[in-house]
Nucleic acid binder design. Structure first.
Lengths: 145, 145
DNA sequence: TTCAGGAATTAGAATAATTCCAATTTAGCT
DNA sequence: AGCTAAATTGGAATTATTCTAATTCCTGAA
């Protein structure tokens, strides 16, 4: 039985959904599962393909619905880089993204607390930032694959 | 005659285009003009409306073509925030953006050199960043309009 | 346990931003 | 003026995403 969540993740998942009064359905679990499974910042399209291998009847709308739900429950994060399709990421720690313009691959980049504080301090008086997004693009040596 | 470029901007414009072997057409000048004129981070749609007031025959495709050209000549910058339409910005200094989730307005946020260096230092060995994007979203007090 | 009612899923249509395309116009050279 | 490549044009096409209305599925009260 592939893509069953580990009991740890299953717990996180159930709890997060129940807290919002939402149902932990098999589609939602599966979408969450494939995102945890291969942390390659998949697009909705990628996720759809992977989910179909486990739950063949799943529709595109459902994938989008599930993703929206998971994002709303803070189980996964959206990653938007330029105009390219939205990607999804189970890494919830504060981190930036690096996109290789050659391969299209996206890498997580840790942000240390000092730098994070300095960035947050850029926001002027009278503005209240709830969200911060930092991304880089450029080239990655192929040894980083 | 509205939206004629100041002689300073006209020079910048002509030079930047000629350097790439491109023609400084009236459509390109007008698109550049409206972006300089009202620095409110307009979308292609906004720009189209404003350009039509000066050059009524202009098509949408032309606006997009001109924008691409201007970006390629480093005369304006694209600003992408989440999934919302691309916006355009004539501020070429390193700066971040703040989007007010209530009004949708976008504000420039200066980045000091120290913070900029620290951010650039986040990029790990083996990665070469050509581009850095920092954006915030949250709420802005209405006195910031 | 059943069953009512809300929640979730589904297929397919609709939308929004952007890009593509083929035809026409224009600008810059000789 | 006339040639040629570049730019513009209108409309069709594309892409990612959202919407809609119908169906199916859970859950908890009887």
């Amino acid at each position: 039985m592939p893509n069953s969540l580990s009991s740890f993740n299953r717990d996180t998942f159930n709890t997060a959904l129940r807290e919002k009064g939402l149902r932990p359905t098999k589609q939602r679990a599966c979408v969450y599962g494939v995102i945890l499974d291969k942390r390659d910042h998949p697009t909705a399209d990628d996720i759809y393909d992977r989910v179909k291998r486990h739950l063949p009847g799943t529709s595109f709308a459902t994938v989008y619905n599930c993703l929206e739900t998971l994002v709303g429950c803070d189980l996964v994060r959206q990653v938007n880089m330029d105009r390219s399709p939205t990607r999804y990421c189970p890494n919830l720690t504060p981190h930036a993204h690096f996109r290789c313009t050659q391969s299209g691959k996206i890498y997580d980049v840790e942000i240390d607390n000092d730098t994070l504080s300095l960035m947050q301090a850029l926001v002027p008086e009278g503005f209240e930032a709830e969200n911060l997004d930092l991304s880089f693009s450029g080239t990655a040596k192929s040894s980083n694959n």
